[in-house]
Design a protein around this nucleic acid. Structure first.
Lengths: 168, 168
DNA sequence: ACAATACGTCAGCTTTGTTGACATTCCAAG
DNA sequence: CTTGGAATGTCAACAAAGCTGACGTATTGT
């Protein structure tokens, strides 16, 4: 339990040592690779990338979302998103419809084919997540989420909270 | 507490619902942005990228490591790593010395300037990590680490475990 | 009428990943 | 001892996906 740390250090602060923080940083780096590995394999077969996955995920989560809204969630430029979106629309995975109230807006939806790919990707990602959750147990999962939420940028956390409690 | 889930579901498995898994997936995505944001800002000023940060981090952790070893830790191709390494060597942040036993190998070390940048980057990253840890508390941090470790690939976890307990 | 907004696009650049080809070095089989 | 294959690392060229900047168009709202 003792990591060779100064015994005069308050016992309750041992988890804030540089050593503990470094382990957390490396865990984050290595875990993120695992987190993306399974979807990446599926995407590579279809010559898509992670950018496509992100767009598909959030269009699925917020059907009818506008380009601008997606932009601020993903935190990329419109030129960058547009490249991805264009290929998804051309391939018939995403439908873009002109807004009724405001005709400048485009509302984005997944087509049946888009939903199918979304399910394939999220199934793969959830499988790994489920295995990790099951191995770690409910208390660990609660801590996991707490730390991740505390790690987000202020603005990012707003996006996260906003879609946190949407019904499936 | 009840998320609108079927009441006949075992109480202990509520954390494994698709809904909970999706929240974890999104938390992971958003948190990783925060995780890299501070170092990214520093790196941009010096016209380096995340790849440079990763190389610097692991050379700092394992001084004298070979290119091949670094390769398997980072999980990229040697050509990709080489480009990054070359610029770091040209800029005098990394020293590459021919192996004594095996002259094919190059042993990598950080120079004084390299150590200085490493410290600047890891200080920035640790600050955010520390704030998150402090906000979440020691129990949450333990759970955080447990879930991340369970999320890694088998081979990746070996790399993680191997450098987990090295002295600073 | 006019400024602001939402979206799309063109051009060009950077980072960071990829494959392919190649030089050097080591080691082991013949 | 030589020689051929494996291992290590480098150079070249290409692709994905991010970026900035400029511009066009349609629509909205003042």
């Amino acid at each position: 339990m003792n990591d060779g740390l100064p015994p005069q250090m308050g016992q309750s602060l041992l988890f804030l040592t540089d050593e503990q923080l470094r382990k957390g940083i490396e865990a984050m780096f290595f875990a993120y690779r695992g987190f993306t590995a399974d979807p990446d394999r599926i995407l590579a077969q279809k010559s898509y990338g992670r950018a496509h996955h992100r767009a598909i995920h959030f269009i699925h989560r917020s059907p009818g979302t506008t380009v601008n809204n997606l932009l601020s969630i993903l935190g990329v430029t419109k030129q960058s998103l547009n490249r991805v979106l264009r290929s998804l629309i051309e391939d018939g995975l995403v439908a873009s419809t002109v807004g009724q109230r405001d005709k400048r807006e485009r509302h984005l939806h997944l087509t049946a084919a888009g939903e199918a790919l979304e399910r394939e990707l999220s199934d793969a990602q959830r499988d790994r997540m489920r295995a990790a959750y099951r191995a770690a147990g409910p208390a660990a999962v609660a801590g996991f989420r707490q730390v991740l939420e505390a790690m987000m940028d202020e603005e990012t956390r707003h996006h996260y909270e906003a879609m946190k409690d949407k019904p499936e």
